[in-house]
Design a protein around this nucleic acid. Structure first.
Lengths: 123, 123
DNA sequence: CAACTGTACTATGTAACATAGTACATATCA
DNA sequence: TGATATGTACTATGTTACATAGTACAGTTG
């Protein structure tokens, strides 16, 4: 995942790491690259990485041990739940807007079904 | 709908007007308030309104006749379709993300059903 | 002509963002 | 102990977007 887009770089990094925690790409107590290392990898300024880490710590996604490094929080479930709530909220908002646009309930349900590729429900 | 939030004021105005066209609050050939009038109503700078109108014209949502005023485009269906496509795209993205977060298909479908308030499908 | 449209400038100020550079306290390890 | 790595905290600089104020001008309408 590259760092590019409209959002501030440090926020893109925040989003990416939160997403990696939510999707188990990053697990509890995993160590993250140092600010300088991450800066080299992503070709951005160490200060920008530090800003992202600071924000992630504020959100209790990672914890910091000066001299040791930064690590993923012990309880990732909290991050996952917040992430899911956010996604469900966005889903709800999209449905509301579609209804206001004159799209029918049936059309929405049909679209969601099609997203799963057919009629069969496995999960 | 008030002008406040994180997004730039002129973009908030753009979004609002596009939404009003998509939801038939504004209809084809309706005249919009003049830049100065809208500025007074919303308590923002006329230049900011002008910037919004310019962007809306670029997106072909409104058309401008210098000396006469600004009017909603003749074919609002185009705006509606673009709006719906955008919303469907967002919906799809939310579902994808939820699946990546370990949420099951059943849970998502159940959530969507609950959005409609129960088991009965009217529309 | 008078009053209204949208448009186009200049100028000013603010705020966020990103960068470079430096410094410092802490932790780890040879 | 000394070297090196960690996160953190500054200052300074530059860029960009945004919003405002003010002025001016061309076209339209009555």
């Amino acid at each position: 995942m590259a760092i590019s887009g409209k959002k501030p770089i440090y926020l893109q990094l925040v989003d990416r790491i939160k997403n990696e925690v939510a999707t188990d790409i990053l697990s509890a107590n995993d160590q993250l690259p140092s600010v300088r290392e991450m800066a080299l990898q992503e070709r951005i300024n160490p200060n920008t990485v530090a800003k992202a880490y600071k924000e992630l710590e504020r959100q209790e996604v990672i914890k910091t041990l000066t001299g040791k490094g930064t690590f993923v929080t012990g309880n990732t479930q909290n991050v996952k739940n917040l992430n899911q709530n956010q996604l469900f909220s966005e889903l709800s908002s999209s449905v509301d807007q579609l209804l206001k646009n004159g799209v029918t309930r049936k059309q929405i349900e049909q679209f969601v079904d099609d997203l799963f590729g057919g009629k069969n429900a496995k999960n």
